[in-house]
Simulated assay, not measured.
Amino acid sequence: MSTGAGLPDFRGPNGIYRREMGVEPERIFDIDWFNRDPSFFYGFHREFLRSLETIQPTFSHFFFSRLEKTGKLSGVITQNIDALHQRAGSEKVLEIHGSVWKSACTDCGKSWGYKESLSMTFTSKIPRCDFCNGIIKPDVVFFGEMVKHLEESREMAQGSDLFIVAGSSLVVTPAALLPSLSRGRIIVVNRGNTDENNLPGSRVEIFADEDIDTFFQQVENFLC
Rank of each mutant, 00 (worst) to 15 (best):
W112H: 06
C129W: 10
S111I: 07
K72S: 12
E68L: 06
S51Y: 06
S51M: 14
Q158W: 08
N133R: 13
K148C: 02
Y114I: 02
F142Y: 10
E116G: 00
D82Q: 07
F122D: 08
L49E: 04
N80Q: 08
S153Q: 04
H45P: 05
R154G: 04
K92W: 00
H97K: 09
G109V: 08
K115W: 14
G71F: 05
G71K: 03
P138A: 01
F143Q: 02
E155T: 15
S160T: 09
G144M: 07
S60P: 03
H85I: 11
H85M: 11
F41T: 10
H97P: 08
T54E: 12
V141R: 01
K102R: 14
K110Q: 13
K72E: 14
R87A: 05
D161L: 00
E152T: 12
M146R: 12
F63Q: 04
C132T: 04
V93H: 10
D82F: 06
F64T: 11
G113T: 11
K72H: 12
S119P: 00
Q86F: 07
F131A: 15
R66M: 06
H85T: 11
D161M: 09
M146V: 04
E145G: 02
S74G: 15
F63E: 09
R87K: 15
I136W: 00
F143E: 02
H97G: 05
P57C: 06
L162I: 14
F142W: 08
R46Y: 07
E53R: 14
V147K: 00
T121R: 07
K115Y: 14
C105S: 11
V147E: 04
I126G: 02
F142I: 07
L118T: 06
S119D: 14
H85Q: 13
Q56S: 15
K102A: 05
F131T: 15
P57V: 10
K115S: 14
D107V: 13
E68H: 07
L150G: 00
S160F: 10
V140Q: 00
E91K: 15
K102T: 12
A88M: 08
G109R: 05
Y42N: 03
I81K: 03
G43A: 05
I136H: 03
M156G: 11
Y42C: 01
G71L: 02
L94I: 10
Y42Q: 03
P127M: 03
V140C: 02
E152A: 15
L150F: 11
E53T: 05
K148Q: 05
I77L: 10
